[in-house]
Amino acid sequence: MSDTQPNGHVEWALRPELPAEAREAAHGFLAGLSPEPSEHTSQNLVLLVSELVTNAIRHAGEVTSLHLRADRRSLQIVVHDPSPAPPQDRTPDLTGRTGGFGWPMILRLAEKVTVLPRPEGGKTIRAVLTR
């Protein structure tokens, strides 16, 4: 799951079936970093992981893979899913039935978000935080 490379980069890769598994992995990933990111950055990373995985499961049916990466300057969350459809902004449902809050929150929390199609099908969403 974890790989520390000679250049100081750290990467975790997994295929969570539930958002709770992804949050647990995010906490483990953060605990293994030295120095650890600030509490604020750590909370944002866990929220981003949870929302990206939840959205992939809800809208694409599954997470093909989740990668958590760290280098000296940034933390990256990379989620692959089987759907080629890009995320859509929706009017949030204030009754709580259909959501609509996750994607705007992802865009607010991350410093950079990219959505790219994958050659083999599906898409990759990458969210970056400054470490």
Rank of each mutant, 00 (worst) to 15 (best):
M1H: 15
M1C: 15
S2T: 15
T4H: 14
T4V: 14
Q5M: 10
P6V: 05
G8V: 06
P16V: 01
P16W: 01
E17T: 14
L18H: 15
A26G: 06
H27P: 01
H27Q: 13
H27F: 11
H27L: 11
G28S: 13
F29T: 01
L30N: 05
A31E: 13
G32T: 07
L33I: 08
S34M: 12
P35F: 10
P37A: 04
T41C: 04
N44H: 01
L45Q: 00
V46A: 00
V46Q: 01
L47E: 04
L47H: 03
L52V: 02
L52A: 03
A56E: 05
A56P: 08
I57P: 04
I57E: 03
R58M: 12
A60L: 01
E62Y: 06
T64R: 09
S65H: 12
S65C: 11
L68I: 07
L68Y: 03
R69Q: 11
R69G: 08
R69P: 03
A70I: 05
A70E: 07
D71H: 12
R72S: 15
L75V: 03
L75D: 02
Q76F: 08
V78I: 13
V79R: 00
H80E: 14
A85T: 13
P86E: 11
P87K: 06
P87N: 10
Q88W: 10
D89H: 15
D89L: 15
D89E: 14
P92E: 05
L94A: 06
G99I: 07
G100S: 07
G102N: 10
W103V: 07
I106G: 08
L107Y: 10
L109T: 09
A110N: 06
T114L: 11
P117E: 10
E120N: 08
E120M: 09
G121E: 07
G122H: 05
G122F: 06
K123H: 12
T124M: 14
R126A: 15
R126I: 14
A127V: 00
L129D: 02
